[in-house]
């Protein structure tokens, strides 16, 4: 069973979470559901700090033993920081996708993009739909 999706953030249909810090920056990771689907994560490729990413474009790569998956930028902006701990300990995403397993911090190019993302309740409904 996946952990419940925290209500203090918004979600993309591609299973990324976005936590708005209210100062024009956000933290982004993948959801617990996503890590459960990927299972044993053994490698994370992080973007360069300072890189500009466009909403919906691949910005990082998460690899499990068996698979390679893109992580899409849920919002447009500039990469402010990356979670370097994932280079040595990629399994942090499996252990704690919503906190220690965060992937990047982004400075928003357009804060209104957050409106297009899903609330925790809507994301929950999407998962119910995917499971059936």
């Amino acid at each position: 069973m996946s952990k419940s999706n925290p209500a203090d953030r918004v979600y993309s249909k591609d299973h990324e979470w976005v936590k708005d810090h209210g100062d024009g920056t956000v933290t982004v990771g993948i959801t617990d559901y996503a890590q459960e689907m990927l299972t044993d994560i053994v490698f994370v490729e992080l973007p360069a700090i300072g890189k500009t990413v466009a909403k919906g474009a691949p910005m990082a790569v998460v690899e499990s033993v068996k698979s390679v998956s893109d992580v899409y930028a849920p919002v447009s902006g500039e990469i402010l920081d990356v979670n370097l701990a994932l280079e040595e300990t990629p399994e942090l995403i499996n252990q704690d996708a919503f906190s220690d397993g965060w992937i990047v911090k982004i400075r928003l190019a357009d804060a209104s993009e957050l409106q297009s993302l899903l609330s925790a309740a809507d994301y929950e409904a999407l998962l119910q739909d995917e499971k059936h």
Partner: peptide, 11 residues
């Protein structure tokens, strides 16, 4: 079946 728990544990 590709795995029951996860690949690393079964390995």
């Amino acid at each position: 079946p590709v795995s029951y728990t996860n690949v690393i544990d079964e390995h």
